[in-house]
Design a binder for these strands. Structure first.
Length: 126
RNA sequence: CCAGGGGGCCGGGCAGCCGCGUGGGAGGUAACUCUUGCGAGGAAAGUCCGGGCUCCACGAAACAAGGGUGGCGGGUAACGCCCGCCGGACGCGAGUCCAGGGAAAGUGCCACAGAGAGUAUACCGCCGAUGGAGGGCAACCUCACAGGCAAGGGUGAAAGGGUGCGGCAAGAGCGCACCGGGGUUCUGGCAACAGCGCCCGCAUGGCAAACCCCACCCGGAGCAAGACCAAAUAGGGGUCUCGCGCCUAAAGGCAGGAGUGUUUCGCUCCGAGAGGCCCGGGUUGGUUGCUAGAGCGUCGGAGCAAUCCGCCGCGCAGAUGAAUGGCUGCCCCUGCAGCGCUGGUCGCAAGAUACCGGUUGCAGGACAGAACCCGGCUUACAGGCCCCCUGGCACU
RNA sequence: GCGGGCGUAGCUCAGGGGUAGAGCAUCACCUUGCCAAGGUGAGGGUCGGGCGUUCGAAUCGCCUCGCCCGCU
């Protein structure tokens, strides 16, 4: 079973509609992908920091996934990690455990409530 | 020792386990595996300048527009960069800073205040010699009417050289001395400029990072440039405008249309179609460009220096959702806390521990990530090292 | 990679060398039995930051920070 990398923006947008498990340091999105195998993607926005910070966070996430996906990853699912503020300072082993728990929760179909669509500030509601 | 100035450099080290990218080698039909080498920075950053490279433009010249630069000389592929020098400002000094051409080419601006702000002006003030009026025998006195003045006061960022003496009714470059300014001969220097002398009483303030003038420089775009391969789709429709020319049997020529900021010459294409607008359809893979280049280092030489020349040696990142990482141990530096600890220090001692040293624990170790490549500039940066110089204090 | 714009009161914006302004909002007073509206008045500003040019800078120049928008 090979593990491939997400590159298309559309894949990331689809993943956002799947299960969502937030942990300190990262957010895990999972979504079945119709038999494309285990795939993963990493998102770290500019809000998190400069290029050094973003690259370092992506490297730590890759290292986490390299260790976790072969055994704990969900077959035929896309996995997307979104970087959060603690992604660099948090202890690596602790994040590894948290990723295991998040993957377990996802495999059992549990997740946080989906994020509400952002709406234009036209103030129609409320 | 204290305070300060200039220049250069480093910016964690070693090891273990698990990984990543890439060049070479070996094996394998292949996927891949094994092995070995290499694998972020001084700013890789901001993108503020200058180039190389590639394509576009048909080449050349001139012009216009726009933009940039601005003491002189040198360096350089080039620069708005660097070096040296000149001038000015600041500092006791080592040194530092300066967009540092032109204000008698023209235009414009100088608010408020003030009498007056660029053709200078006269509010307070000073004078009233001369003329006038009044008084007195007269010398002269009074008035401040004519008139004279710009020293003093006051306003302002700035009041049309400054200080002093003379001069005068009072004054004024009115005269003189010094300082400042302008012009000029000569001397030194490649030059910017400097110096000496002579002349001119001085006539024209500031702003050009206001328009502008002068001199010099600049074609446009950017590796998503560009080239090749593969796949797929299309090689359409509508409408408007201008055209279906002349000589010739033909080739060709002329006229015409289109193309490059403009023009001229020239060139290319079209030539029976050309152009504009609208509608519809399709594409975002791979390879290459891609790292040997104004390259890096030692030594020698030229030069005050920037830099250049020569010999020898080295091979030094190439990712593409984007490699250089994850974890751990020891060492180094800093901070905090603990321990009087075979040290120092204090104390006769018991003992004390602010300080130096030792030891243990914990925490922290900057700014920041190549993306075609170089030369600069600018900005960010914990901590540390080296060299030279200045001022002061102490000692010899 | 290339190019453009913005930053001024709590908010939306004027002002382009000579005292920082308007509207809305806030506060006080008047009006009303009370509220709204209206009227009168007041407070509120490192003009994103730094350096320079100038007598004088929100305005001109350079550097810098943040945000936004195009093109490829």
């Amino acid at each position: 079973m090979t593990i491939s990398v997400l590159t298309k923006r559309a894949d990331f947008l689809l993943a956002n509609k799947g299960l969502r498990n937030a942990r300190p340091g990262f957010v895990l999105l999972t979504r079945p992908n119709q038999g494309q195998g285990k795939r993963f993607g990493i998102t770290v926005t500019k809000k998190v920091g400069n290029a050094v910070v973003r690259n370092r966070m992506k490297r730590r996430f890759r290292e986490l996934l390299r260790d976790a996906l072969p055994d704990e990853g969900l077959a035929d699912h896309d996995h997307v990690l979104i970087g959060r503020d603690g992604g660099i300072t948090r202890d690596f082993h602790r994040m590894r455990l948290e990723l295991s728990h998040a993957l377990k929760a996802a495999s059992e179909g549990r997740g946080d409530r989906p994020r509400p669509r952002r709406r234009k500030p036209d103030g129609a509601r409320k």
